[in-house]
Amino acid sequence: MSPGFPLFRLPDNVVLSVFQNVGVAQQILLSMISRKTKKIVCSLNLRPDSISLDTGASCDLKIQFGFVEIRIAFEKSDKNAEREFVKIERPERVEFYEKRCVKLRRESVAYGWVNGPAGVRDYIDHFMEILHHNWIDELTLAWNSAYPLESIQQLINGLEIKNLHFTKDSDSEDYLVNCLNAIKPSRSFYLNQAPLYVRNRTRMRQFFIQNLDDIFILDAPSDDAYPLEEIQQLVNGLEIRELSFSQISFFGNLEISDDDMMNHLNAIRPSRSFCLDRTPLFVWNHSRMSQFFVQNLDYIVIGNASLRKDGTEAIVHAKYLRFHLILQEFLND
């Protein structure tokens, strides 16, 4: 007998059981070895929470399974190559990482991976097939991405892109429009650190190509923020399912008053939820918060918790639920 373990000399039901008893990273790695192992991994019916693609300096595919994140980085070996000539169809090097949470600590493992003749799209198709997930939850484009838009478009051709994010300022409105038209996200479009010109509502209006799930207001309201009236005109006629506020001071210096929040709610009228991220603790006052249930919202999210209309705590987002579980576990220790 060889020094290894003769797995495939075992009955099929036992082989399947072994595959069920390895970690999700190993299951994914095993699927890459042969057609037979791929078929077995397919039969495990793995369902990730999300798959995202980040096209920055390298092309990263991230697969989230609860507390486990698998990241596959596709890199060209020649990092000095001129960006205009970098193509991502066939990576020179593929790296495989796993981040996991062990006893409330994050740990990361890097796996070596020798690349075969496959291209990035071949890998994406492979993962989509074994994970039964035929869409990209989030595509992140960096303004200074190493990859031309045409390459990215080819890479995701035929796949639904739910959310599109930009991570850096773009000084070209045409570039943003081109990206949006090329990618056509089905749910949301997110501009981080957007340049000032996006404050021009008539020009911004073109980005609202369809109903969006979420409108996210950063640092609002303040002198630099987008005026409420303009937001209202921007979203006029569109259904906005969620309204989120972020970056509100955690230390008591509120940059937004109850009245401001109420004004935004009444103006935008989200159909499903209202999310207050990083709000100070005192908003956790049911009688004060109840005023925000001005319409038929499913829930309101405050930092790490969610409230129903009757003031009871709601469990609506998996990420919040997990946070509660960790916290509970921690308190029990």
Binding site: G4, F5, P6, L7, F8, Q26, I33, S34, K36, T37
Partner: peptide, 8 residues
């Protein structure tokens, strides 16, 4: 993995 499990 291929070596450990003798995967053809």
């Amino acid at each position: 993995l291929r070596i450990i499990y003798g995967i053809p």
